[in-house]
């Protein structure tokens, strides 16, 4: 009986840890995306400040390539849309992982409780 619970406890702990790791990964992705979104917003603001005939260049590897201002603006907006969508996706992922973590935590507590009770019982019988 005690061994059975112990095995279950180990299993539950393992899955709890896996979820925890996934959650941490998702959180760092979120931070990265957040930073990218901020950077793009700053660039967009800067592009908006330029006159219509302002010269814009895009760095591709070691060279700067001249780009139309309109095109650059479109590109940045598109990227911001994409990043926002990704953010939404990661947010949902984080929420679901947090829920998973909570269920595992509860399961762990329950099993721990059972384990302790079993130990007390065993001690009484001994």
């Amino acid at each position: 009986m005690g061994e059975d619970i112990q095995r279950k406890l180990q299993l539950e702990l393992d899955s709890f840890k896996t979820v925890q790791k996934e959650l941490q990964k998702a959180i760092s992705t979120r931070q990265q995306l957040d930073g990218q979104l901020n950077e793009n917003e700053i660039v967009k603001k800067e592009l908006d400040l330029l006159p219509a005939d302002g010269k814009v260049f895009k760095s591709v590897g070691p060279v700067l390539i001249k780009t139309e201002l309109v095109e650059a603006k479109q590109n940045v907006s598109k990227r911001m849309d994409y990043i926002s969508k990704e953010l939404k996706r990661v947010d949902d992922l984080i929420a679901s992982l947090e829920r998973k973590q909570d269920t595992h935590r509860e399961g762990l507590q329950k099993l721990q409780h059972q384990f302790q009770q079993a130990q007390v019982k065993a001690a009484l019988h001994a």
């Binding site: 950077e39 700053i42 800067e46 302002g54 010269k55 814009v56 895009k58 780009t67 990227r79």
Partner: peptide
């Protein structure tokens, strides 16, 4: 001058505008 404004975009600005930036 040409200024790096981030995300690999660079813009040309005159000296006054660059200082302002």
């Amino acid at each position: 001058v040409i200024i790096d404004i981030g995300t690999r975009y660079y813009v040309e600005k005159d000296i006054a505008a660059a200082k302002d930036y």
